[in-house]
Structure formats: structure tokens, C-alpha cells
Write a protein that binds this DNA or RNA. Structure first.
Length: 580
DNA sequence: TCAAATGGCGCC
DNA sequence: AAAGGGCGCCATTTGA
């Protein structure tokens, strides 16, 4: 379990609690340290076996520059480690709070340069998009320009900055408890371990089942560059219905075809086309659906991403500004429901699939401290209670209002419903609306654990300032107001989505710790507010309980003062498609 | 001709 | 039903 407010665990036998590690060729270099950073013994060139022995003997927190470029090679060598401190990930969190967003986050590398070591440009310019993600687990890439003293300096430097960073900066209102920030750092580091482990183990995936789904929907697998049979039939029907050739893959062509047929469409999105009264419409909609399946999760995806019965994704923990995970390639966070029956536990194993029910509205309850809303939070279905209070029992309206409030909807029915919500729950609404106003002013917002929004770009400031200027034309003024409002919607949602991501990160990393007691159990999937464990069938119920307990721990740690609940719903199944 | 932008849609 | 937040990915289109 992650201890809030502490950065290190119990001392090991020899007093060592930390182990700085760099990747060298061949092998690794390690320095054991006490919790104040004092070296214990000598720097050591080590192999995987020695690292495993150090883990057993000292159970240290491993300090390294970047989990995603360090840990996969260790996993490939058969070493699993329990705890780490990820310098790069921590640096991004701290820099954002210090108003130094966008500065190089490779702290150890920066420190190494200060000490006079050469730092290659690619590492020095370590912006989030430039972080090398080496998921080839057999790649063993040395840390260029990073040595053990630099790593230790970077670690101590980061520790010393936590309290100030937690306090934030004058005028920004982003202060959080230092313990919260430490929890965030620990959770993010642990999530990086999860991401590497999950990427290596992979999600059980049966290619024959997937192929059956594709063949059923699309017809036999076509030659490369050809349309699958059922798409070809639909394309022909579309041509017939219009009376002239149309390429349904081309939005330009499709829009032109509808124009010739007398329909002026803003876009060719499916919900727009659905409203058009023309004989081609059903075939167009069917074609779009099949086309999406074929191009995003068709046979090409299957051959590229599924090997040896596993889908191995490249996860990027906290890769999104809000702290949500991202992926590189494979689209692991957009697996369509229609192919989920291909995810099947191995013989003798089961899948424990769990999602957090109505997480975002519950997070709003917690971060806003709205007492009236909190009174509803005990219900299993938050929207039912909400409906009774403000929406004459209409659950769908209550849900729409809540989503509209969190996403910043102002127009249409949802906009009106948000107004109703505001009347009943002023504190909750004030919370999101304050966040929106800060965004409109170009200011920052923070999640509950202290992840801070990125500042607006210079271009944004320019547009907003010009729009507010005395000589602005009506159009320029309108444009300025619009980008300001867009920014407000972003910051409004940031505090909710990001705080939900905080909770989920603690949930995931807490569960990872519990699962060490269950031989054969592996986290195999994580998607924002949902996770999946692959474990021996007889341990399914035990793992399900752990999932629930981890959620409870996460609630206590992340929302210590809140009355919000964060219930999760673990299901023990054979197949992902059965988890509904 | 090639890289970047756009449109569209899957997930939460 | 529509369209507010966050993404990644594909095919097509655009523009240097």
C-alpha cells in the first residue's frame, strides 16, 4: 500500500531504503542509499540476478530516470520490482506546479549537465512528446548522460521541492497538501511499473475468435487494398441509391453526393446523416460502421498487434494532461465493444473486470464538498437520487444535467438542465464554474492530488487579449471570447477528469500491491475507470474482493475529508464480453 | 511528392 | 437526440 505523506518504506536489513539504478551496457549500475541519500557501500555494476537479490534483501525504492525506458529490460530479464521513484514523471508534476511547464523534464539529465556530464540533445529536450518509449523489452538502451550521483541529486532535489510545489504560487489557487502531492508522485511511479508489466504480459486475445467476428461482419478477408465483400456490396448500393458513383470513404465526395441529391450537410457525421431522408442513408451508415471496424480493428490490426494469444499495448501512464493514460499504437483505450468477445481467459484462469460506477459525478461530489449532493452519494445510482431532488424523478435528465455541468454545456436542453442543477446544488456548480472562470482568465487549476493544468499557449493569450482590446472588430472580439470559453470548458473538465484519474491511479497501484499475494494474477488492462486482472479461476473471488478493497483505500487516501463513495463493480468472467 | 491537417469515430 | 471534456488512429485532403 502506498503511504500518504511518506516517500520511503521501512528500512532494509542494512538500513538501505533506496537504490539508484542506471542502465549501462552491459547490465546496470546500482547504488544503495539511506533515506537521506547517503550512500551505503560502493557503486556496483550488476546483472539482473543481482538486482533481484537486492530487491529481496533490501526491498528498496528504486530510483531511476524513466520507468518506461528502464523497467522493460529488467522485466525481460525476469526481474520484477516492487516500488520505484520515476524522476521524469515526478519532474513533470513538479515543473507544472512551479510554473515551469514545458521545461525539460529529464531532471537527472539536467542535473548531469550541471555536473559537467555531456547530455545528448534528445534527452535534454525531453518534452512529453519527445520521451522515448522503448517497449521492445529486449532493447537494453543505456541512459545517456545520466550517472548515479546525478540521479541521487535529482531525487533529493525533487523531494526538497515538494512542499513549495504543493503550496503553489501566489494568485493561482492551486495549493494542495504536500502529502497529497507525495501520494500522486508515488501513485504515478507505481502506475509506470504497472504500465510496463501490463505491456509485457499483454491482454489474452484469441485471434480465431476475432477473425470469426470480422468474417461474420465483413465477409471473407479481402486481398490488401481491396474492400471486404460486405463493404463492397454496400458501396454498390450507395452508388445505386444516388444514381452516380460515390466514394463513401471520402467525406468530400459523400457531402457532394448529398448536395446533388438536394441535402446541404454541415458534416457527414453519422448522426447528421441519420436525419437525412434519402434511400442511400441506411447503406451509408452501415458502410461507415463496417469501415470503422475494418480499418481500426480489422485483420491488419490483428496481425500487427496480437501475438502468441496476447494483445500487447504500449501504455503511456499519465500521458494525457489530465493524468489519464494514453497509448502509442494499437488503440488499447478504444477497443470497440464488438470485438471484446475475443478477450478470453486462459484455461484454468478467469478475468476479473471492474469499473468504477459513475466515477466522475462522484468525484464532483468529493471535490466540491457539496453537502446536499453528498447526501445522495450513498446511493448505488447517483442519478436516481438526483432525479428525485431536481428533475421530477427523470433519471435521464439528471444524468444529462450532471454531464453538462462537468463538460460545460450551455446550449440546448442540457444547458437548461444545468440551470436546474445550479439551483439545487449551488456549491457543486460553483466548484466547476470557478474552474471554468479560471481557465477563461488563463489561470491554472489543479486536481485533488495536485496535478496542474498546463498554461494556455502564447497564441491563446494573444487572441484573447486582442479580442478584449479597444480596437477589436466584432469578429475578433467574438473569436477572443470563443477561445476563452473553450479554455474554460477545458479547465472545468480538468478538475473532474483529472481528479478521477488521481483516484484511479491510486486504485490501480494499491491493487497491484495486493495482487502480489496471488500467484499467477496479472493486471492485464486499465482504461480510465476500469481494470482487468487475469488470475487462476479459483482466486477470482479473492481478487474481486481485493479490487473492492483497493477502491476503498483509494477513496480514503484521495478524498480523506469527503463523504463521497467510489463503489466498484468487479465481475469474475471468462470473457470480457460477459462483463456488462 | 510528401508531410501536416482534417474529418470521422471508437473509447472513457 | 444532440455535442459540451479528454484521447488515438485511420483514410482522405490540403498545402508547401
Amino acid at each position: 500500500m502506498i503511504a500518504a505523506g511518506s516517500t520511503v518504506g521501512a528500512p532494509g536489513k542494512n538500513g538501505a531504503v533506496l537504490a539508484a539504478l542506471t542502465t549501462d551496457r552491459p547490465g546496470w549500475s546500482v547504488q544503495l542509499l539511506a533515506d537521506d541519500g547517503t550512500a551505503i557501500g560502493e557503486q556496483e555494476r550488476v546483472d539482473a540476478e543481482r538486482i533481484a537479490a537486492l530487491e529481496t534483501e533490501h526491498h528498496p525504492r528504486w530510483i531511476w530516470n524513466d520507468t518506461l525506458t528502464t523497467y522493460p529490460a529488467l522485466l525481460a530479464a525476469g526481474v520484477r520490482l516492487d516500488r520505484c521513484h520515476d524522476i521524469v514523471m515526478t519532474e513533470r508534476i513538479l515543473l507544472a506546479r512551479e510554473g515551469r511547464f514545458g521545461e525539460p523534464a529529464a531532471a537527472a539529465a539536467v542535473e548531469a549537465r550541471r555536473l559537467g556530464h555531456p547530455v545528448p540533445e534528445d534527452l535534454a529536450e525531453d518534452l512529453p512528446s519527445a520521451v522515448p518509449v522503448l517497449f521492445d523489452t529486449h532493447t537494453h538502451t543505456p541512459d545517456p548522460g545520466v550517472d548515479l550521483p546525478a540521479l541521487v541529486n535529482a531525487y533529493l532535489d525533487q523531494l526538497s521541492r515538494v512542499a513549495t510545489a504543493a503550496a503553489g504560487r501566489p494568485g493561482e489557487d492551486i495549493a494542495v497538501d504536500p502529502g497529497a502531492l507525495r501520494l500522486l508522485i508515488a501513485a504515478d511511479s507505481a502506475c509506470a511499473l504497472v504500465a510496463a508489466e501490463m505491456g509485457r504480459f499483454g491482454m489474452p486475445w484469441q485471434p480465431d475468435v476475432h477473425d470469426r467476428i470480422l468474417t461474420e461482419k465483413l465477409g471473407a478477408r479481402p486481398a490488401p487494398g481491396e474492400r471486404p465483400p460486405k463493404m463492397a456490396v454496400l458501396a454498390a448500393q450507395i452508388n445505386d441509391a444516388f444514381g452516380f458513383p460515390v466514394n463513401p470513404d471520402s467525406a468530400v465526395d459523400l457531402r457532394g453526393a448529398f448536395r446533388r441529391a438536394g441535402f446541404e450537410l454541415e458534416t457527414t457525421r453519422s448522426w447528421v446523416i441519420k436525419e437525412v431522408d434519402h434511400p442511400a442513408v441506411p447503406a451509408v451508415l452501415a458502410y461507415k460502421e463496417l469501415s470503422r471496424l475494418h480499418s481500426a480493428n480489422g485483420w491488419n490490426w490483428l496481425t500487427e498487434w496480437v501475438r502468441d494469444g496476447r494483445f500487447r499495448a504500449d501504455y503511456v501512464p499519465a500521458g494525457v494532461v489530465t493524468g489519464r493514460w494514453a497509448t502509442k499504437g494499437g488503440g488499447a483505450l478504444q477497443i470497440p465493444k464488438v470485438v471484446r468477445s475475443a478477450v478470453v481467459a486462459e484455461p484454468g484462469f478467469c478475468l476479473v473486470v471492474a469499473d468504477a460506477a459513475q466515477l466522475e459525478p462522484r468525484v464532483l461530489v468529493a471535490v466540491s464538498g457539496d453537502e446536499k449532493l453528498a447526501a445522495l452519494a450513498g446511493d448505488d445510482d447517483l442519478y436516481v437520487g438526483l432525479a428525485e431532488i431536481g428533475f421530477s424523478g427523470d433519471r435521464s435528465k439528471a444524468k444529462l444535467a450532471m454531464l453538462g455541468a462537468m463538460y460545460g454545456q450551455t446550449s440546448g436542453e442540457a444547458g437548461r438542465l444545468v440551470a436546474t442543477l445550479r439551483a439545487s446544488f449551488p456549491a457543486a456548480m460553483a466548484c466547476v464554474e470557478t474552474a471554468a472562470r479560471r481557465g477563461e482568465q488563463g489561470r491554472l487549476v489543479t486536481t485533488v492530488l495536485g496535478r496542474t493544468s498546463n498554461p494556455p499557449s502564447a497564441a491563446w493569450t494573444e487572441i484573447v487579449d486582442t479580442g478584449a482590446g479597444p480596437e477589436a472588430s466584432a469578429a475578433v472580439e467574438r473569436r477572443g471570447r470563443q477561445v476563452a470559453r473553450d479554455r474554460g470548458r477545458f479547465t472545468r473538465n480538468f478538475i473532474i477528469q483529472g481528479s478521477a484519474a488521481d483516484w484511479a491511479a491510486v486504485w490501480l497501484s494499491t491493487l497491484r500491491q495486493s495482487l502480489r499475494q496471488v500467484p499467477g494474477a496479472e493486471l492485464v488492462f486499465f482504461q480510465h475507470d476500469e481494470l482487468m486482472v487475469h488470475c487462476p479461476a479459483e482466486q477470482g473471488e479473492q481478487v474481486a474482493r481485493m479490487v473492492t478493497e483497493a477502491a476503498d483505500t483509494a477513496r480514503r487516501l484521495v478524498f480523506p475529508h469527503g463523504r463521497a463513495r467510489t463503489p466498484v463493480r468487479p465481475l469474475v468472467v471468462k470473457c470480457y464480453a460477459d462483463a456488462k
